[in-house]
Design a protein around this nucleic acid. Structure first.
Lengths: 242, 242
DNA sequence: CAAGGAAAATGAAGATGGTTCAAAATTCGG
DNA sequence: CCGAATTTTGAACCATCTTCATTTTCCTTG
């Protein structure tokens, strides 16, 4: 009875198709103008079929976000498996974030919207659960690096929990994305390359935590060399250029 | 010809009324369920009148955000005028943020939504400009503290610009708000009091920048004393309790 | 291979809620 | 007190999301 499996596979494929085209539509004409009927038409299906996959438009948006979070997770997993000093590994998490956002320029706009109360609440519970499940490994990757740092004697927690430490870096990265994607905010504030700055701030914060070996804050060359090294050793297939 | 002025004043008052009631409706039944017609009814005006103030629903939401950003600015201005060590003043910015968010629990949810591409673009250009204008002093307050730190010899920039340094702390605060207000994210991550953690992270970051006098990261008592002192000396009238 | 029925796809109709605008009401100067 | 100018009104309009009765497709069975 392979019929059922085939059906399921085709169904999953079609879901990918919808997501793919949705992303394309958003790229072309903005999140604002995404319309369910247009999307269905573009995919050559009826609206009703689209609604067999997604309980609502919001549900679709959260599904989009989840799909991209999956790729995000993949980058982090690589970092966690990288064999090097714990401090460098932690810094590489920031670089992974930077690379991810640059490769998926639309992702943050979509997820920013999809994770707002309004959209989040309107998505189906299943979809929300999915999203949280996909994000979980991210937290675990980062936490494991912190634990390694402590085990290797590079870092002392001083009463801070592993999760709390992670939250700081997470907030820093997340906040940077947020500022970057809020039109008019950083432009007016004369910050040129926000992601380079983010990397510097990660170094500052890791220094603040006393995570050894400390980085020399005046040596931007060293930071760029490290970023290059990370790109070569960990993400060689993700960023040929730059 | 005082007629014109009176009209304008009444118009402005009515706008406040609309904003007030909108906030109330959101508090009662969520951003998701805010309806223009309901809002008009609650205010005992016709929908058309509401639309004389706000070009669209999105415009209203951005106006709400702007109004609250004004109060936010006020808190920051106080901090900037506080006479004390530059490092303490900078830390107080974080405390101001914490107080503001706790006093305005809905603000972040609304602004998070209003500043998303979708809503931002749908608001009127005037409204967007207003928002940016209101936010500008925030940046200036923070920047002035950094400049004071440098002048007083408490801080060396080491090639980082003032704006870049500010961006780091801003991102940290903003990111924390974001994580706190994204349902299910921090809960699963076992972070209890995210804003206490945020304050710790600010200290870590300021230490990382080498901003003197350095804080002892193991001494949480000292941090709480400082927070209390800030509440007493700067925000006495804002937070009687806690 | 035809029949029957389960499963899936369809898209027109329905529902919702934002927005407009012609008409009614109000205000104000003369 | 009049009539023009301004403001308010809310029913009608319209854009989209969503549903669901009908049609089509697909598969099993006799």
């Amino acid at each position: 009875m392979g019929t059922k499996e085939r059906r399921q596979r085709q169904f999953a494929e079609r879901e990918q198709l919808f997501l793919e085209h949705a992303r394309e539509l958003i790229r072309e004409s903005g999140l604002l103008n995404l319309q369910m009927s247009r999307l269905a038409e573009k995919c050559e299906y009826a609206v009703g079929t689209l609604y067999q996959h997604f309980a609502s438009k919001e549900d679709l948006l959260l599904a989009l976000t989840t799909a991209q979070a999956q790729e995000h997770t993949e980058l982090f997993r690589r970092v966690a498996e990288w064999k090097t000093l714990s401090r460098e590994r932690m810094f590489a998490i920031g670089v992974a974030d930077k690379i991810f956002v640059q490769r998926n320029p639309d992702h943050f706009r979509i997820s920013q919207y999809a994770l707002c109360e309004v959209v989040w609440r309107a998505a189906s519970p299943d979809r929300r659960e999915d999203f949280l499940a996909v994000c979980q490994p991210i937290g675990r990757c980062v936490a494991s690096i912190v634990e390694d740092g402590v085990r290797d004697g590079d870092l002392e927690l001083n009463g801070v929990t592993v999760q709390e430490l992670c939250t700081g870096l997470w907030a820093l990265c997340n906040g940077t994305h947020n500022l970057v994607h809020t039109e008019g905010v950083l432009e007016d504030f004369a910050v040129r390359d926000a992601y380079r700055v983010m990397c510097q701030h990660i170094q500052v914060m890791l220094n603040g935590f006393g995570w050894k070996p400390l980085a020399d804050p005046t040596d931007t060359q060293a930071m760029h060399r490290l970023i290059q090294r990370i790109k070569n050793e960990v993400f060689h297939d993700f960023c040929c250029e730059n």
